[in-house]
Amino acid sequence: MSEVVLQLEGLRKAFGALVVTDGVDLDLRRSECHALIGPNGAGKSTLIHQISGLLSPDAGRIAFEGRDVTHLSQAERAVAGLGRSFQITSILPEFTVLENVALAAQMRDGSSFRFFRPAAREERLNARAMEALGIVGLGPRAGLVASHLSHGEKRLLELAIAVAGEPHVLLLDEPMAGMGRAESATLTETLRALKARYPILLIEHDMEAVFSLADRVSVLVAGAIVASGTPDEVRVDARARAAYLGEDHVAAP
């Protein structure tokens, strides 16, 4: 079994009386894609928010590369190497596509408390940004103002931003949300390529993508993990089927 890079222990979060994360234990290992699936409202995004630091858990512990990051801020966790994408597209709408990604690259390139030199003309940052855009296939759109991108392209920009921050792991919250079939298929191949470079914690509703990419699948229902294992194990797990998977998914090869 390869090294664990991200480990959640007994994570718990409640909004008032509503328990959205109920004692979750989960780990992500080096060079694997671990998919987290579950019905709407199961608490998947809330879990990602707690890992990335947007929300803090009520109890439990998050260890990243052997270090307790439970009490670090969102920015500190990103610096530590936790890169993420958002379920609801979260980009900088007024910046160009290139500048969106260059800003992410800037975080890894020395101090950002530099006040005089025009950042837009820093070739090293722009080159890194173009590289990330190339990975997701957005290179030709680099000069466009981000708000003018199509929905699918914005999803890809999300991913490029995450990649340009040179993360050690990628937390992807429904990268395919709202994408067409062809776009999803293309993105699946992009993610397959990224999997070789980063461990990926993937939340996704597209079962075709999940079962083709994931090395392990965990099923989250009402804030708790009800099943976990290889795709084949989860596919036939009674609890997982009852909770989430439709019969057609199970029947599919």
């Binding site: 990335s52 947007l54 801020s73 969102q74 920015a75 500190e76 990103a78 610096v79 993420r84 958002f86 979260s90 980009i91 900088l92 709408p93 007024e94 910046f95 800003l103 992410a104 975080m107 950002s112 931003i161 921050g165």
Partner: peptide, 11 residues
Amino acid sequence: QNPTRVAAMGY
């Protein structure tokens, strides 16, 4: 434009 995104980038 988007403070949450900027924080998630590490700033």
